[in-house]
Design a binder for these strands. Sequence first.
DNA 1: TGGGGGCACCTTTTT
DNA 2: GGTGCCCCCA
Length: 765
Amino acid sequence: MSNLSISDMARAKPPTPYLDGLNDEQRKAVETMDGPVLVLAGAGTGKTRVLTTRLAHILATGRARPWEILCVTFTNKAAREMKERVGAIIGDAVEGVPWLGTFHSVSAQILRRHAELVGLKSSFTILDTDDQLRLLKQIIRAAEIDEKRWTPRHLAQTIDGWKNRGVLPSELDENDRWSFAEGKGQELYATYQARLRTLNCCDFGDLLLHTLTIFKTQADVLAEYHRKFRYVLVDEYQDTNVAQYLWLRLLAQGSNNICCVGDDDQSIYGWRGAEVDNILRFDKDFPGAEVVRLERNYRSTEHILAAASGLITSNKDRLGKTLWTEDEGGEKVEVRGLWDGEAEARFVAEEIENWVSKSHPYSDTAVLVRASWQMRAFEDRFIMLGLPYKVIGGPRFFERAEVRDAHAYMRLVRSHEDDLAFERIINTPKRGIGDTTVQKIAIAAREMNVCMSDAARTLSQTDEIRGKARTSIKVFLRDMDRWREQARDSRHDELAEIILDESGYTAMWREDKTPQAAGKLENLKELVRSMGEYETLEAYLEHVALVTDLDRAGDEDEVSLMTLHAAKGLEFPLVFLPGWEETVFPSQRSLDEKGTRALEEERRLAYVGITRARERAVLTFTANRMIYGRWHSVIPSRFIDELPADHVEARSDTGIYDSSGPGFENVHTPPSPSASSYSSPGWKRYQANSAAGKGSRPPTINAKANLIQSGNAGDTTGKWKTGDRVFHDKFGYGKVKRVDGSKLTVRFDKAGEKKVVESFLKDLP
DNA sequence: TGGGGGCACCTTTTT
DNA sequence: GGTGCCCCCA
């Protein structure tokens, strides 16, 4: 391993202006070459800058030509950003970095060149989740498995998990085999793969898995890529799964020049198969690896950084970094307790208006939630106030039904063998071709060993299918033939318009009087427009298969509302982090499923959240939370306790938590679920379930009105009787002394005070 | 075949 | 609380 020192390099090459302004650690990360390098880049330390500069540096110093560099990212956004930034440094030559892209797009490129090695044609289509589920459903039905108990979704997840680990059907171990439908998992997986091959299809996982198989089994192909790729760059290494890791390791064996950039503290996709372990054992996987730490944060003020750093030290599985900033002081992280979700939304909206009134733009602020259902309360409030906002990562354009229908038409025109497309649109719009007819066609197709279009053609000439269905099929097939004819000599976007029109698809939505219909028509217009941006139909379809959303103009002055996951890589001067309550954040469900590992991942999510803030981070929790129409009495997140007190300022508006003194240490944490007030049968059942690894929701506690009855988990009807233990927002815990219609007399523990709480029942919302 | 009503579901989701 | 899915009925 020869490691040139920085001065050696400076001597060897002329000064390089793009290196100006980098700090020492960043320079080291850019210039350390000739061996594996792991750049541990903390939040806000200039990760993307280092990666792009490194790529530019390799090109500028003539170490490799653009097509000799493999550079993989996870998102299209990151890939695009890199292209732009490298372009800005070294000029237009980037157009010629053909192997810069996402894991999946690079894999697709490779796979198209060698598809026949895994039994596919190079024109294979990339399936989306919807197609995948439909296919799996058919397979489960065919295997006569109870599809209620073993759902297609469940199978999709299981198979995805296997693919993420790079495991083929034949390679499953005993444990895996039994993880679905009493040992039938393996067979189903094999059937699914065989079906995909017949249909000449790939799902997302296959793009990587097939490429991996080729690398593993075809030494000459691998050698070709070893010769080709002299440098390998990887972004967000902490999010790689096992398949991606194996893929990278095989490719990097050639040059041994691999540079991975990542942050173990920001690994938040474990539930999708990402393995933090990959980054944790980098130096063992790649012997002689240099590890460069980027620890200077350019984003946040001292308090924000310290609060986040303090929190993340509770994690055991981490390499450890000490982030620092020159931006001393600033505002402490604010923690606020609110009565319920509505109060929380009111509070956040008010704070945003305050901020804006000090002549800041709305776009300075973001609300980051754990789960998307939390967004609604904020949307309601924002709409009521007329406060401009946008939801980031909402329903995806290319996943909308109407867009997918249109794609199916195009796919079927392109290839009449696309059975999935055929099934999707044969009766959309309604043509009187129902399930029975489709089933007949499917069975005939299987018997004759032809595609469904061909089977339908044959059947329509016999008496197998009669009446309306028969004429409809004939018309449909004739239309298809005509469109295929037209496809030869018309632009694909114009053809799309013709097809949507003539098939009656547009008309279907025009006649639809539901409020959504107008939006659907808009989307179809947008679809035709975006098709026009691609040279060919193939290029367009490849693009939509690998890209999940259209770019939206992001320059409007609006508050951003999104999940914590969607916030990775972004930053805002003012960040709100609502819903820091046990069961919500950390999410009870992920804890139930994966225990400690999940807890650490939730903590990393908290870390990601706080580190999005440049100037102010405001964290809120409530006492009562409405989840799926039920009230839950909730307690503050353990993550709040884990924040270093010196960097936090806590206030409470609820009266529940003792706010008599200043400072975080005076916030009274209510009893945890193990404490006496939560020792009801419901809680016990819940705890037993959790311990046994079974997911179950915490019991519902009646929290309507201003009075919470503690521990009546089973009974949520709001019946009160003498002796009930109660909890009041102002007076704390107490005992019911007398019940008189809607009037309660309660003695409160703390003050020993007797209060008459009137008419709370009739105030129920 | 297609529409209506009952019912189970309900996290995060770069590709 | 809202939605998508399945079954049953016309």
